[in-house]
Design a protein around this nucleic acid. Structure first.
Lengths: 231, 231
DNA sequence: AGTGTTAATATACACCGTTTACTAAAAAAT
DNA sequence: ATTTTTTAGTAAACGGTGTATATTAACACT
């Protein structure tokens, strides 16, 4: 008959579990995530967590959704101070925000884009919405370029018929955006992601948090390739 | 006094451990790698593995080096059938080989570029050589372009002085290649990697193993941006 | 007061990497 | 040829993990 720690009596234990998980992920990295460690920190027993999350994967899924939300917020916020018709600077702002967020919240970034939790595979049904939301700001920037007639489609290659079905199904999360917009946005995303991914995972030299020439030149290249001059 | 299974008496148990590890990684994924499972498969006990690898991380490091070697072989082989002065097609060949290898050996790809083993962090000293070797073919293609005067340096931005030291140290693995070559090669690598990484990790729709428009257009863009026309 | 539900516990199981102590066989040394 | 040393395995155990089961304490509602 052990008297439970008052900590466990806080209004929402579910949130406390997630908060502790984030704290431990930030401190020891996502792979070290442990239900038992979380329970210890909260002065409860490990099985108690199962009252709030079906299993470890359910907790991780909740964390992934949180990470996507944080990422989406950052993407959205980066556009607030840039005029909606200043396409060049909107591309630049959202591109820099991508990298800055990854550096600021490395563990969240890895949780989304790497697979640091052994045996965990996210279900598209659950994370789809928050994932789509996080990418939508980039899509909106590109779509604005297209609507303004400033989207360069020289590189556009239609999706091969064989993959059209898959593509269409996957695109359901993106409000049936214009194919050209989708094409360009995914290309931009893949470039920005490629740089940041290699950097975060230690395959590039450690540039630090500040912008550097290589990344800025990639943003330049994106602007030059996809943004028409005003005609 | 148990008579050991003949399997354990094969000439090189170290290689057998690695082979079994690869087999289980291919079947169940890298995160499920387990020394005990390997030992079971080989009819030995788990601690016996410690005669051949200092600990789990040492085994993983050996696997990572193998993966880099396989990747480097693939990169090298892709250039064999293309004339050394056919820069456009060398870029294309090596780019397609990158993606094809990642699809063919997904688990090896993830082992290198993701961090699927909990708690494992590769030491640059040990994997540096095989890692550098795997990237060198790309560097050689770009360097050949530069020497032939066909490398477009319009986007080049010198490394910021603050990072020059780090950069130089890291570059020691790459035979002091020309800075411009290094700059362009890293950019190309990051683009190709970005696409494949998103694809392999399920953030892009499943295009399958065959080439598709989006990836080919990225290779096009790389050619157009960095390869001068013959002057 | 009694009943049903909720949320925690205690216990247990099967797995993991790793350490220690021990042993049998092979190799080396005398 | 005998003794010693090294090698390469085993057995047992420690502390860790996620999770299932059964049980118990506290609460809300009739």
């Amino acid at each position: 008959m052990i008297k439970r720690n008052p900590k466990t009596h806080q209004s929402n234990l579910q949130d406390a579990i997630k908060a502790t998980a984030w704290q431990q992920i930030a401190e020891y990295g996502a792979p070290a995530l442990s239900l038992r460690a979380i329970a210890r920190e909260l002065n409860i027993t490990a099985p108690a967590i199962y009252n709030y999350f079906a299993d470890r994967d359910a907790l991780v899924t909740a964390l992934v959704i949180d990470a996507y939300t944080s990422f989406g917020d950052s993407q959205l916020a980066s556009l607030e101070t840039v005029a909606v018709d200043d396409h060049a600077n909107r591309l630049k702002a959202i591109g820099l925000a991508y990298r800055a967020w990854a550096h600021r919240y490395t563990q969240r970034y890895l949780l989304i884009f790497s697979t640091p939790i052994p045996g965990y595979a996210p279900s598209i049904d659950q994370i789809g919405p928050s994932s789509a939301r996080s990418i939508r700001p980039l899509f909106s920037v590109v779509e604005a370029m297209r609507v303004a007639g400033r989207l360069n489609d020289a590189a556009y290659r239609p999706i091969q018929p064989a993959y059209e079905a898959h593509f269409e199904q996957w695109r359901a999360y993106f409000d049936q955006v214009h194919p050209l917009t989708h094409f360009v946005a995914m290309t931009i995303w893949s470039r920005v992601h490629g740089f940041v991914s290699l950097e975060i995972n230690g395959h590039f030299p450690p540039f630090g948090e500040n912008g550097d020439g290589l990344y800025l030149s990639e943003i330049d290249a994106i602007q030059r390739q996809f943004l028409h001059k005003v005609s």
